[in-house]
Simulated scan of single mutants.
Amino acid sequence: MNVSQHKAAFLASILKEGEHYAGILLGKDGHPDQHIILLPGDVEKDWEGSKSWAKSIGGELPNRREQSLLIANLKGEFKATWYWSSEPSGDGWAWCQSFSYGSQSIHHTGNALRARAVRRIIV
């Protein structure tokens, strides 16, 4: 089996219908830490509602590092707008990612933004 066949077999073994492989994140030691999988579907809700939705489909909102990986590798799977991250930023605020320009900022958690969910596979 060549490298391409190994990759295809690996992805077939971990992806469920409608999911997309985003890539692998490195840990603090610089070694591969976890595979990031983008789940199908999205919503537009406030931050708490988005976290609840993600949990209901078996995932979580991505953190800021994961969002950077998503915009680098799967930008076409997102609308050109803001998406919630899982990371709070003080009382009543949370981080989000623009899939238009690539920037990260904070929004009030009561605002309705889009959300996508991910799941992680530890390496």
Rank of each mutant, 00 (worst) to 15 (best):
M1Q: 11
G27Y: 04
Q5K: 14
H6R: 15
S4V: 11
G18Y: 05
R64W: 03
R116L: 07
L69C: 07
S68T: 11
P88R: 12
S52A: 15
E87W: 02
Q67N: 14
W47D: 08
G23T: 08
N63C: 11
L70W: 10
G59P: 07
G27Q: 05
S105K: 12
L69R: 05
F78H: 08
A117P: 06
L113E: 08
W82P: 02
P62F: 07
V3P: 01
N111R: 11
Q97R: 15
Q104F: 06
D33V: 00
N63W: 01
T109P: 03
E77G: 00
L39D: 02
A80E: 15
K7E: 10
E48T: 12
A54G: 02
V43G: 06
D29Q: 08
R65Q: 13
K7Y: 12
R120T: 13
V118A: 00
L26M: 09
W95F: 10
A117M: 05
V3A: 15
S98F: 08
G18D: 01
W82V: 01
A22I: 00
W93F: 13
A94T: 09
K7I: 14
E17R: 12
H108A: 14
I57H: 02
D33S: 15
V123E: 11
H31Y: 11
I122E: 12
T109S: 12
E19Y: 00
N73Y: 00
L38E: 03
G18T: 03
L39Y: 04
H6F: 09
Y101W: 07
A115S: 10
A112I: 01
W82Q: 04
V43K: 10
S98L: 11
A22L: 08
R114I: 00
L69K: 10
Q104V: 01
I106G: 07
I24R: 13
G102P: 06
W93V: 00
S13E: 03
